[in-house]
Amino acid sequence: MTKQHKAVALISGGLDSMLAVRVLQEQGIEVEGINFFTGFCVEGHTHAIRNHDKDKQKRNNALWVAEQLGIKLHIVDVIEEYKDVLLNPKHGYGANMNPCLDCKIFMVGKAVEWVKKLHKDGFDFIVTGEVIGQRPMSQRKHTMPIISEESGADDILLRPLCAKNLPETKPEREGWVDREKLYDFHGRNRKPQIALAKQFGLHDFASPAGGCCFLTDKSYSDKLVDLWQARNSREYELDDIMLLKVGRHIRPTEEFKLIIARDAGESKFLEGYRKQYTSIHALSHSGPMALVDGELKQEQYPLAAAIVARFGQGRSADEVEIDIATPDQQRLQIKTAPLNAEEVLQEWYV
């Protein structure tokens, strides 16, 4: 009996990695999935926070994909290690703060480590859903060998969706998979993938527009850069990068920024941070929860209160009573007139 070969696939939650796995399953390869959580991933919680997405399935796409494929999924927390990828990308950034090429090298490298260290004899090769020319930065003909090489995967990295456009890898050479039954997809045209999905009977898959994480998003990247500039340091914690996904961010002075909820869902979410951040909300009217990031000096209280008042039901009232609570729950109430729309300067919006 021939040995059944086993592969670990990088699962992002999108269609491509899903197809890559299905193609190999067709060839009798046993596949398990691995998914990396960097903290920047576009996840169910980001949709769950806001009210208007309430009806949307709050699913984790990687788990969902694994379930559709009938494979095991290992989710790995790489938040700490990822910092170095984001802060010092050897190959630079894409259109925004996305270090896609370094990110790919890092993730494939982690998969190599995972296979070699933890599952010595268990897995024979690594699979990704990469397609040549699909993404401007990481998925190009000349970046494919860079990823294989710098990750340490070399010829045990197989990309079933574009393998025919690439040199033969070990699984093909050894006859574990039939190269003829792999694909030659290239470019940004998604039609071949959609057709293949149809052929496999896959539907309802997520198709992220820009990429698999928030770092490809301009507004998110702007907020991240603003945070680094304001702190004079590029260090960050998970809470910092989570909060960049939520609320309006308004920076009236260099010292502090207000994160103001846009709806009740976000207010509830921000409430969870009141023991870590100074929080501000209206008492006399209903209105959003706001957190202060940075240093809010006493003399700035009236300004911060007037801004928060602007975003609540009391925006046209003469006076709004605002509560300011520090993380150790020292509280202060201020009565203030809300700023009017023009007084909240456009350049304050991060």
């Binding site: 996840e43 169910g44 769950a48 399935q57 709050k58 699913r59 984790n60 788990l63 989710i75």
Partner: peptide, 11 residues
């Protein structure tokens, strides 16, 4: 996190 209601059973 209510997301866990979906994610943990799926996992």
């Amino acid at each position: 996190d209510p997301g866990a209601l979906n994610d943990i059973p799926a996992w």
